[in-house]
Design a protein around this nucleic acid. Sequence first.
DNA 1: TGGATCGACTTGAACATTCAAGTCCCGACT
DNA 2: AGTCGGGACTTGAATGTTCAAGTCGATCCA
Lengths: 152, 152
Amino acid sequence: MSLIAMLMSLPPAIDAQLKRDSGLNFFEYSILSQLSGAPGRRMQMARLAQMAGGTLSRLSHAASRLEERELVHRHLVTGESRCTELALTDAGMTFLEAAAPGHVREARRLVFDVLTPEQVAQVRDIAQSITTAASPEVARALREAIVASDRL
Amino acid sequence: MSLIAMLMSLPPAIDAQLKRDSGLNFFEYSILSQLSGAPGRRMQMARLAQMAGGTLSRLSHAASRLEERELVHRHLVTGESRCTELALTDAGMTFLEAAAPGHVREARRLVFDVLTPEQVAQVRDIAQSITTAASPEVARALREAIVASDRL
DNA sequence: TGGATCGACTTGAACATTCAAGTCCCGACT
DNA sequence: AGTCGGGACTTGAATGTTCAAGTCGATCCA
């Protein structure tokens, strides 16, 4: 029951802060954030969908909304992979830089500030176990992301 | 990042099982489940919304859907409180009894089976802390629910 | 008595996500 | 060379949630 309560309260709280301060939902924020860390600030749609944790269809709709706001733009890649890439515009980068501190502050306030360092370590292990059981796909993307961030 | 991955993977997995096997989403399941445990298998809308973790508006829409399926029915309470109650029908009770085992099994599989007993205790404390920070409302409803279940 | 306000809802429109096609190109098989 | 299947999207409709009114008694004063 406690876990369910957290699942019900944390994502809405995070979303509310982003929505209020930047007019983005968490998924859209994740898209911008992932793009900002990618080489050339661009990424293939399919790969981005994996990293941001959504389906291709969801990403396609979200990309359309972000494109409307000129934070992002689509770019067809010719050549052997025949795919479309999403690229962060300069305006998008600026926008993200403005949005990030508030989001980080909220994440800190709701999670890190209320947990001891041991609990932070515990929740990492627990969350990884549950994620692996619930969605091997997401778990794999997570491991990739962790490896990538370790390289920094 | 691990926590985010869990937030993204667990609810969809739970929803998917319920949807596949019973055609309910988790919120609708929660409504039926709460009603089944209430005295007289009925509860005031506003109170039910709190217990099930949603807004009144969301509950009202969901109640309409469940009423369509005759799992539940609305009942205006006259008298000093002037509110509407939602009551579980016999068909609703039967339906819930059929849906519950699969849901419980899935919850066990995705959470309890992959955690040690110590981790289960850890996640309880962690989730309560985060819930309190993210939504005092939900945290209060949770405490109430815990007290209620302790009385059994 | 007569508003003003409040709580408990309901409703409909706006928005986001999912779902089921549909398109387009590529590479493999025959 | 032709076509079959598959990957990478896009699109539109269906579904569910949120948001902003709107309704309807009850209660609070003045």
